[in-house]
């Protein structure tokens, strides 16, 4: 299913990441590889540096030391403009909540990445409609995020993250605010779509049941990563 530790060149690779927030050492030498089409779970207790790792991997923050390579480019050295472009075209990001623009309808929120890429509004909306249907939120096109349930909003967020056909989707506790049934619907939608389109997923979670949707798990503790599944 995936290239577990295989010889293939990883899609995204971080080496010895170090990052401090003030006096708090969030990452101390974290290394991780993500292969094309793979679903990888990063688990760890709260405060173990999971979110900081995601921020480093997406180029939202620059690590104090270490490297992040993606498709031959060093993300930790790229200018902000190129990073924004990568996040817009090659990456999709889903957070626990907040990434949808509260004033825009579900349809416009999903169409937004296409609009940013210069696609005409009608065309973007038509494509967005298809994606909403795919995630089972048809009929909610005209709702604003505040008018949707948490599970619906997260599926809209997933549609928005996947509409540009990204190579990697980063999901930071995507079901953190949901009950178990909504969480199951969101995760199933994510896993099915990612498998169909061959999108790699980096899934950050503290929940073992969510991590079980992944092909592989790495565990962060004290700012460093250890693979899970290798018998000690």
């Amino acid at each position: 299913m995936s290239n577990k530790g295989g010889t293939a060149v990883p899609l995204l690779a971080a080496r010895d990441l170090v990052k401090a927030h003030g006096r708090t050492q969030a990452l101390r030498g974290a290394s991780v590889e993500l292969h094309a089409g793979e679903i990888l779970a990063v688990t760890g207790a709260s405060g173990s540096g999971k979110s900081t790792l995601l921020h480093c991997l997406t180029g939202i923050v620059r690590p104090d030391a270490g490297s992040v390579s993606y498709g031959g480019e060093r993300l930790d050295q790229l200018p902000e403009k190129r990073l924004s472009e990568l996040r817009r075209t090659e990456f999709g990001v889903v957070f626990q909540f907040g990434q949808l623009i509260p004033e825009l309808t579900a349809l416009d929120n999903v169409a937004l990445p296409l609009l940013l890429a210069g696609v005409r509004r009608q065309e973007a909306q038509a494509t967005a409609g298809e994606w909403l249907e795919r995630f089972g939120v048809r009929g909610q096109e005209e709702l604003r995020p505040g008018e949707m349930s948490g599970g619906q909003a997260q599926r809209v967020a997933l549609a928005r993250a996947l509409i540009t056909g990204p190579k990697v989707v980063f999901a930071d506790e995507p079901t953190g605010a949901l009950d178990s049934l909504a969480s199951e619907q969101v995760m199933t939608a994510l896993v099915h779509t990612a498998r169909e389109s061959g999108t790699a997923v980096l899934l950050i979670t503290h929940d073992a049941q969510v991590a079980a949707y992944a092909d592989r798990e790495v565990r962060l503790s004290d700012g460093a990563l250890a693979p899970v599944g290798v018998t000690a």
Partner: peptide, 21 residues
């Protein structure tokens, strides 16, 4: 640690069973 890995492996199997089309 080993027990945890074994549990996770079983959870992944069960999740694959229930998310299969």
């Amino acid at each position: 640690r080993a027990q945890r890995a074994a549990h996770m492996e079983r959870m992944r199997e069960l999740t694959a069973v229930k998310t299969a089309h």
